[in-house]
Simulated assay, not measured.
Amino acid sequence: MKTLSRKLKEIIDNQILNGSFSTDQSLLNGRMGLSLFFFHCSRLLHNRFYEDFAGELLEDICLHLPFDLAVDFADGFCGIGWAVEYMRRQGFVEGDTDEILKEIDGKVMERDLRRTADTSFEHGLEGIVSYVRARLDSPRRESNELPFDTDYLEDLKNACQRTGVDWQSEDYIPEKVWKRVVDWWRQEAAIAEVYNWKRGIPLLETYQNT
């Protein structure tokens, strides 16, 4: 049986004690990322406690989600909503994401895309596309029940055409977006030289491949 590296064990123990105290609910920098870390810990290490911890974090995030957040992927609604779709796709959670994410979908549609110039993944159009694609591709009972209205989708397509973002590209399927998220965490952790959950998820991948 493989043993955890000392550094990964330190990260897990530290985040159990301190991670839930953050007030940042976001995916790339906050508690949603931490919840994903522990869901992956649970699956890889076969530890039910980590799954329970991740689930409690997720429930608390959903109950206390501030609705004055930005729409972006890094710090706002798109990243949080995308993570819920990813968790369902991975079998970490169950439920009707159309119901769970209904309010987030509404907030995302409030973002006016007609003059947007930022195409970045973290704060701009690529992050929005990542979320919209995850929602449109989500399995649902009725294929004609879409989470976004036709006017919003038309504005999104026009914005992508104007800025050169190929919103139908394979780059925006959940598996590719997940790799992009992990790479972002790896770079951030290396720059800051910190050993929190941002460093922990790449370490989990290393552990899995050894």
Rank of each mutant, 00 (worst) to 15 (best):
T3W: 07
L4S: 07
R6A: 11
K7M: 07
I12V: 07
N14I: 01
I16A: 02
L17G: 02
N18F: 11
S20K: 11
S20A: 13
S22E: 05
T23N: 14
D24P: 08
D24R: 06
S26Y: 03
L28R: 06
L28I: 10
N29L: 13
N29D: 11
N29A: 14
G30F: 07
R31P: 02
S35L: 02
F37T: 06
F37S: 02
F37K: 01
F37Q: 03
F38H: 04
F39G: 01
F39S: 02
H40Y: 11
H40K: 15
H40Q: 14
H40G: 00
C41A: 10
L44R: 07
L44V: 10
L44C: 00
R48C: 09
F49E: 14
Y50R: 11
D52M: 13
F53Q: 09
F53E: 12
E56W: 03
E56I: 10
L58P: 02
E59H: 13
H64A: 07
F67K: 11
F67M: 14
A70D: 15
V71P: 07
F73V: 07
F77E: 02
G79I: 00
G79V: 01
G79K: 00
G79H: 01
I80D: 01
I80Y: 03
G81N: 03
G81M: 05
W82Y: 08
W82R: 04
Y86W: 12
Y86V: 07
M87W: 09
M87V: 03
G91P: 01
F92I: 09
F92K: 04
E94P: 05
G95L: 04
G95A: 04
G95Y: 01
I100F: 06
K102E: 14
E103F: 12
D105W: 06
G106M: 06
M109R: 10
R111P: 00
R111I: 06
D112C: 05
L113C: 04
T116Q: 13
A117L: 15
T119D: 06
H123S: 15
H123E: 12
H123N: 15
G127Q: 08
G127R: 10
I128D: 03
I128A: 01
R133M: 09
P139R: 07
E142A: 09
N144Q: 09
P147E: 04
P147V: 10
T150P: 00
T150M: 09
D151P: 01
Y152F: 13
L153F: 04
E154R: 12
D155V: 02
L156M: 09
N158L: 15
A159H: 02
R162E: 08
R162S: 09
T163K: 12
W167V: 00
E170R: 10
E170L: 09
D171T: 10
Y172C: 05
I173L: 13
E175V: 01
V177F: 03
V182L: 11
A189Y: 06
E193S: 14
E193C: 12
V194E: 15
V194T: 13
N196G: 07
N196Q: 10
N196V: 05
W197G: 06
K198I: 08
G200F: 13
G200H: 06
Q208Y: 08
N209T: 12
T210C: 13
T210G: 14
